[in-house]
């Protein structure tokens, strides 16, 4: 029997969520013509995607990756070099580069990932951030390719000034949709189950015949490839790359904070986290940018999240909803609590 039963991967609630989300994201930039607002939307959508991509490795597999700035920077520089040195041309054509950049990064990263993934927990965190600083140092020093500390200029896109941000916004939104689709496929598949097992007890998972090496590599590579894709669009939007800016330790930290705030065991958690923190971050960076005071706000928020909402907003909300439903006369019969299972984690999961 193949009819979609109660255990089918595609649930009505999920479909409604996906359609509503696509509709909202598609309409958002049309509401306002204010450049700073649309620009804020571009960055928020980008961060939602980065947090979701990070979540594949950091959330589902529980590997505390702190160096995703490296992959973002690789994507950004690849875009800049592709447009200025390789002569891809202007207009919409640079967007085509996103695909080879993402796939290329995912493949190139494989041997490095194999090495890093031999370590766990704190050692992995340190190695991943070391990798990021190594890439940053390379960007400073391979001057012929990156321009070193004098930076690299990406040709300005020839889009009409009134709607200049829109192509970038929709490129970011398409990447976000792709990232969420990837996350959804992973979560609802054996791969997701294996990654969750790795997170909970990797050694026991090995003893149960789970191909831990393989699933970790896949999560790492896909996470890195998607991150590079966002970096590529960002480079074309920003038009000026500087190593300390394009390969930024704060990128991973921001993504992690968003994933934690929203709920790193859920699909929508990182998006919710980005929707809350993204605009605030842009605002604070704008107001207190020079003093970098916003970093203190970051740290305070991180502590609050871990202290008050260790699971994040989405799981906490889902549980409250379930409790309300159970309290009503038409109470659900199952006593279910949040797990990674797509069947028992509430509709929001």
């Amino acid at each position: 029997m193949t009819r979609p039963g109660p255990h089918s991967r595609i649930r009505p609630a999920g479909t409604i969520q996906a359609v509503a989300f696509v509709a909202v994201v598609a309409v958002l930039p049309l509401i306002t013509g204010q450049h700073w607002l649309v620009s804020l939307l571009v960055f928020t959508v980008m961060y939602a995607g980065l947090a979701s991509a990070w979540n594949l490795l950091g959330g589902y597999a529980g590997y505390p990756a702190l160096g995703h700035g490296a992959f973002f920077g690789v994507g950004a520089y690849a875009m800049a070099i592709g447009t200025s040195h390789l002569g891809v041309g202007g207009g919409y054509r640079p967007f085509v580069l996103i695909v080879p950049i993402a796939v290329g990064t995912a493949l190139v990263v494989l041997p490095i990932a194999r090495l890093l993934l031999r370590t766990r927990a704190a050692a992995f965190a340190v190695l991943s951030i070391t990798l990021m600083f190594m890439v940053q140092t390379l960007a400073y020093n391979i001057r012929s390719l990156t321009g070193g500390s004098s930076g690299l200029i990406v040709p300005l896109a020839p889009f009409p000034a009134a709607i200049f941000e829109r192509p970038f916004y929709y490129a970011m939104a398409a990447l976000l949709a792709l990232t969420l689709a990837v996350c959804w496929v992973v979560r609802t598949s054996k791969l997701g189950l294996a990654l969750n097992a790795v997170r909970d007890d990797e050694d026991r998972a090995r003893g149960l015949g789970v191909q831990t090496e393989l699933v970790k590599l896949v999560a790492f590579a896909v996470s890195a490839g998607l991150t590079a894709a966002f970096g590529a669009v960002w480079a074309y939007y920003i038009t000026f790359l500087y190593p300390g800016f394009a390969i930024d330790p704060l990128l991973a930290l921001g993504a992690i904070l968003m994933a934690f705030l929203g709920g790193r065991r859920t699909l929508w958690g990182p998006v919710v986290g980005a929707a809350l923190i993204g605009p605030a971050q842009q605002y604070f960076a704008y107001r207190f940018g020079a003093s970098q005071l916003y970093l203190v706000a970051y740290a305070a928020l991180f502590l609050l999240v871990i202290y008050l909402l260790p699971e994040g907003i989405v799981p906490s909300l889902a549980r409250r909803l379930r409790r309300l439903r159970r309290a009503s006369p038409a109470a659900a019969t199952h006593d279910q609590v949040a797990t990674d299972s797509i069947f028992s984690a509430g509709d929001l999961g």
């Binding site: 189950l193 294996a194 097992a197 015949g209 191909q211 797990t339 990674d340």
Partner: peptide, 22 residues
């Protein structure tokens, strides 16, 4: 696996070829 349901804990024991991961 504390974060997985009891059912999923058991299901994990089933061996999977690599191409069935999705």
């Amino acid at each position: 696996f504390p974060g997985l349901s009891a059912l999923e804990n058991v299901v994990l024991g089933r061996n999977q070829p690599w191409h069935a991961l999705l």
